[in-house]
Amino acid sequence: MFKDQVVAFAMGDPAGISPELAARLLTGEVADQAVMLVLGDRRVLELGARHAGVELDLPVLSAGELGDARPTRSCLVDLGHCDPADLQPGVASAAGGRSALANFRLALRAADAGYADLVFFTPFNKHAMRLGEPAYVDEIGFINRTLGTTRSGSEFNVLDEVWNARVTSHIPLSQVAGALSAERVFESLRLTVRTMEGAGFSRPRIGVAALNPHAGDGGLFGTEDDQVILPAVERARALQMAVTGPVPSDTVFMRAVKGEFDAVLTMYHDQGQIAMKLIGFDRGVTLIAGYPFPIVTPAHGTAYDIAGQGIANPNAAQKAIELGLKLAARATGPRDDVAMPTFAALAAGALEGGPPG
């Protein structure tokens, strides 16, 4: 079903379980579902294969050898920018962060230029990435700068039981209420519906979490639920979206897990993350939607505590790729309105941190 799709496969933090996960995925069933355009350092992937106890059969190319055409078979583009001998397993470093950022930057630009249909990355370590690039805050900000877009995407956490979308993300809790507006809540609902329909849901049922205790209790504990969230919910209902809320946040996930909702829209990061990680920490998928192509990764982190031990579980990473392929299959396909830059030019820009060549 996905044989013609290309996954821009960015290798994540080299000091964690990312190398092992990459090797397991590239020798597992998911590798047969699409073309894997793997971006990173050959030495890091070989290290991961040794940790995983697997043998790789993957052509290794330079960026120049890929030329200016989409790959037709899986391959590794060796960027030669990260020697594992210079890293300490389980320890964040500027070198590791820079390599992960370069891989991610190239994957994003490859998908944007038409070389790939989606972006997948093995786990990043935010501390390492900030060591490598002090301006780094989170993936969405990095994506916006890399693609030169002014319209931000949104992060979803996905489990078999329930999806979680959120209105605000990586901002201080003290700023959440002021960042909410009826328009922003409504746009988050509309993106959630559109994204879930792309994943195969028909009229997804969404529970909208209240901001305040008891959904504000008639204004006793705050007015945002009545004055900001409810108007957005009513607007969505008028457009025939299956939306309920605001629902007190101490019960909304319980109702979702019992089958009442397919997704929960939360107002801030930890309002959803705590619940989702309690439900299925090692099974979750993170999806970044709202861009011309899906961006996916396992929801768990770099697991520095088990780096190099050969026990990393690839299930969540495999689910991430499968979700990305499903979403990409419903997208419009590669752009054909502009000439594709050479892959060597993209790679040079990604390594330098500057604009695409």
Rank of each mutant, 00 (worst) to 15 (best):
P134W: 08
R151K: 10
V137P: 01
L159W: 08
A135Y: 06
R151W: 01
R145D: 04
N144D: 15
E183D: 11
N157F: 15
F186K: 09
L191C: 10
F186W: 14
V208Q: 01
K126Q: 08
F156K: 03
T223K: 13
R194S: 15
A215T: 03
D217Y: 08
E197Q: 13
E224Y: 04
R190H: 11
Y136R: 02
R145M: 00
V158T: 03
A199V: 15
G153P: 12
R190Y: 03
E197A: 14
E183A: 11
H127M: 06
H214C: 07
F201Y: 15
R184Q: 11
G222P: 06
V208H: 01
G148Q: 12
R190A: 11
L147Q: 10
K126I: 10
S202R: 11
L173D: 04
L211Y: 00
A215E: 05
A135Q: 14
E183K: 15
S152C: 08
L173R: 04
D217E: 15
T146L: 03
V162A: 04
Y136L: 02
P134Q: 07
M196V: 10
R130Q: 09
I206L: 04
A135M: 06
G198M: 06
G141N: 00
W163G: 01
W163Q: 01
I143K: 00
A179K: 02
V176H: 06
L147S: 09
I143R: 02
A182D: 01
N144F: 02
A210S: 14
L180E: 00
G141E: 00
A215C: 05
T150M: 07
A177S: 14
A135S: 15
S152Y: 07
K126W: 07
A135I: 09
I171K: 02
V162C: 05
A209Q: 01
E224V: 10
L191Q: 14
L220C: 14
G148K: 14
V208Y: 02
L131K: 05
E187C: 06
T149Q: 09
S174V: 09
G200K: 04
T146F: 08
P213Y: 10
